[in-house]
Design a protein around this nucleic acid. Structure first.
Length: 324
DNA sequence: CCTTAGGTCCGCCAGC
DNA sequence: GGGCTGGCGGACCTAA
């Protein structure tokens, strides 16, 4: 992703667009701010002819037409009131054209159906709103639909689950393009939790006041404070005075992840922060974050962020820091 | 890429 | 019955 020029984002507005989905990228990407670039994204709603009916009882006026969308760096496809049942051939055409120009495609909620209609999702992993996941995989059997995650990042093609998960995906884009600091600041400005991981379940049990939930929170706090230590499931269970089985179960129901998956994500996040704010060598950074080796860290970076630690540092290190 | 040993995850089920 | 716990087995994952 080039940082030199403003990244253009086209938010498509098909007839009957879900107004909430449409607003998400406009708000999140439009409000992202960078220390050196005040507006890293130029976001425009694209569609027509105006006015365009939304699903929410009001019509909207797109600032740009679909030809602009075909030239954008990122194209966002929101859900529609028909939940993806109707064809929107003009959208298909624009999305295909954008893809062939190398644009990044992003769908929110049932926007996945419009993206799927292009055939571009075939053979890839994707997700959509849980209530429509089954229909998506029946209609497009070549897509590996994962109904249990907030969003799926397939590099140049990203899909998210219903509504609010679109916010998580947009924050993920900001983090991918501009690093953790910018995405955290963006989240803070929106009074949002920093960023839920993509693999997190769409359904999460109330983690709040029960004593059991509290105990897990305490353990997680301890884990975050001791990321550099090797920890086994067994030790963690002993520490919190519950069985391994119960520990795994609580993690899954409260975070949607297994204990070690959760731990690995926290380690990647810590590493991201350190890569952005320090110039300690990769080797000591890896052990500081608790990765058994630099190879292990690289593997997790690949999986979670689709990049390598070196590359991440090069992209996000502040200008003053040592550039290697 | 492979193999291997040990760890992890989760359905199942019995027990409280 | 209903809800939570934790042991067990086997599929799966990871480190070396």
């Amino acid at each position: 992703m080039t940082k030199t020029s403003t990244h253009t984002v086209a938010v498509l507005a098909p007839t009957g667009v879900v107004a909430f989905d449409l607003a998400i990228p406009c708000q999140v990407l439009g409000s992202a701010a960078h220390r050196h670039v005040s507006r890293p994204y130029e976001v425009a709603v694209c569609g027509g002819p105006n006015p365009i009916k939304s699903d929410s009882g009001f019509a909207l006026t797109a600032e740009r037409d679909l030809t602009w969308a075909a030239r954008a760096d990122t194209v966002v496809i929101p859900g529609t009131a028909d939940d993806g049942l109707l064809d929107h051939p003009e959208i298909t055409e624009v999305v295909l054209e954008a893809h062939h120009r190398g644009a990044r495609l992003v769908s929110i909620c049932t926007g996945a159906f419009l993206l799927a209609a292009t055939g571009l999702l075939d053979g890839r992993r994707a997700t959509t709103h849980w209530a429509h996941a089954q229909r998506l995989s029946h209609t497009y059997p070549a897509i590996r639909v994962d109904p249990d995650v907030l969003f799926v990042d397939e590099g140049n093609m990203l899909t998210s689950a219903g509504l609010a998960a679109g916010i998580d995906l947009c924050l993920h884009l900001v983090r991918t393009d501009h690093g953790a600091r910018v995405s955290n600041a963006t989240a803070r400005r929106m009074v949002m939790a920093p960023l839920r991981a993509g693999g997190q379940a769409q359904f999460i049990d109330q983690p709040l006041p029960e004593p059991s939930g509290l105990k897990l929170a305490l353990l997680q706090e301890w884990m975050l404070g001791n990321l550099h230590e090797q920890m086994s499931l067994h030790q963690l269970a002993d520490r919190s005075l519950i069985s391994v089985r119960t520990l795994t179960r609580r993690f899954r129901s409260e975070t949607g992840l297994s204990p070690l998956q959760w731990l690995a994500e926290q380690r990647v996040r810590r590493a991201q922060e350190l890569l952005e704010h320090s110039d300690i060598p990769i080797e000591s950074l890896a052990s500081e974050c608790g990765f058994p080796s630099t190879e292990a860290m690289r593997t997790y970076f690949r999986r979670v962020l689709h990049t390598t630690p070196q590359q991440y540092r090069r992209t996000f290190a502040p200008p003053g820091a040592a550039a290697r």
